[in-house]
């Protein structure tokens, strides 16, 4: 990490410590949800933006994390942290299995199968309501004995920062190098000795585990898990955040998550139009500015400084 980048990151982390001092409970809630989306969009970007594979099961895996942990804490009385850990493991295993089956056949198969997985998970959760409480939602215990939005904010902040550090390390490691080699030229990468399938399956499993982790924390924050958590609507929001913010860049999904989550709070006043609006913006971005908001800003700054 360059010195300048390190200082900028530090400045952001210091700034991120203050919101609970002046934000209302409502906006603190919006910040916590934004942090959840940062984890989701950044880990989705790890596979889509860096290895070029589009998974439509990212929300489904977060749902696996949330429901696994939720049910373990409710029915077996496990502490939430252990539930989240197990939920993350379940998401990782499922990700590995789906990835192993599909990725050798190519990206199209992964997209089709993950879409199917999302649908099936929704059907199972809605129908097995003696365990999951179906659309009524499963009430789960919170992470803290005493409910406080401030504690949740700091918890989410710490987990998000740790997750982002891991993602940053992966991108800038040798593994990240092979990710990009696979993305840029698959044939060249495989002929220079990279096992492209193994790299992609691994990336997919890691990314799925991360969404399981994010989902686990999300469930214990909301304390009510509904089939909306693993829904395709949620998947779309995560995808739109990464696409609008900027895929394939580290900062893109972070920016996209905050912007879209905060925007949707304002739009919600007029009704449920935010999905339609974000869809249209995402289409326009994917068509005309595939590098997203971050890409546009970066180009602009470079031009002004050069």
């Amino acid at each position: 990490m360059g010195n300048k980048k390190l200082w900028i990151s530090f400045a952001f982390i210091i700034l991120a410590l203050f919101p609970p001092l002046f934000l209302s409970q409502y906006w603190l809630h919006v910040m916590i949800i934004s942090l959840f989306y940062v984890m989701m969009a950044s880990s989705w970007n790890l596979i889509a933006g860096f290895t070029g594979q589009v998974s439509f099961a990212h929300a489904a895996f977060s749902g696996m994390g949330a429901y696994t942990s939720g049910m373990l804490t409710v029915y077996l009385g496990l502490p939430p942290w252990l539930g989240i850990l197990i939920g993350t493991g379940v998401a990782a295993l499922l990700g590995f299995g789906l990835g192993y089956l599909c990725i050798r056949m190519g990206g199209i198969y992964l997209s089709l199968t993950t879409l199917g997985f999302s649908e099936i998970l929704r059907i199972i959760i809605t129908n097995e309501d003696q365990w999951t409480r179906g659309t009524m939602g499963l009430q789960v215990p919170g992470f803290f004995v005493e409910y406080s939005k401030t504690s949740y904010y700091y918890l989410f902040l710490i987990v998000t920062i740790l997750l982002l550090i891991v993602i940053y390390k992966i991108i800038h490691s040798e593994m990240g190098l092979t990710f990009r080699a696979v993305l840029n030229d698959e044939v060249a990468a495989s002929s220079s000795g990279i096992n492209t399938v193994r790299v992609r399956v691994l990336a997919f499993a890691i990314s799925s585990a991360m969404s399981g982790l994010a989902g686990g924390f999300y469930g214990h924050y909301l304390m009510l898990i509904t089939p909306d958590v693993p829904s395709l609507g949620q998947m779309f929001l995560v995808l739109a955040m990464a696409v609008i913010g900027g895929m394939g860049s580290f900062a893109g999904p972070i920016v996209g998550s905050f912007v879209l989550e905060i925007l949707s709070e304002y739009i919600r006043v007029y009704g449920e139009y935010h999905v339609l609006l974000f869809g249209l913006i995402a289409l326009a971005m994917a068509r005309f500015a595939p590098e997203g908001v971050v890409g546009i800003l970066r180009k602009k700054w470079r031009r002004e400084w050069a």
Binding site: Q53, G107, G279, L283, A286
Partner: peptide, 14 residues
């Protein structure tokens, strides 16, 4: 391939 998958998915939601 990746952008075509993303675009048709977003289109389906829209």
């Amino acid at each position: 391939e990746m952008y075509s998958l993303i675009i048709t998915f977003v289109l389906s939601i829209v």
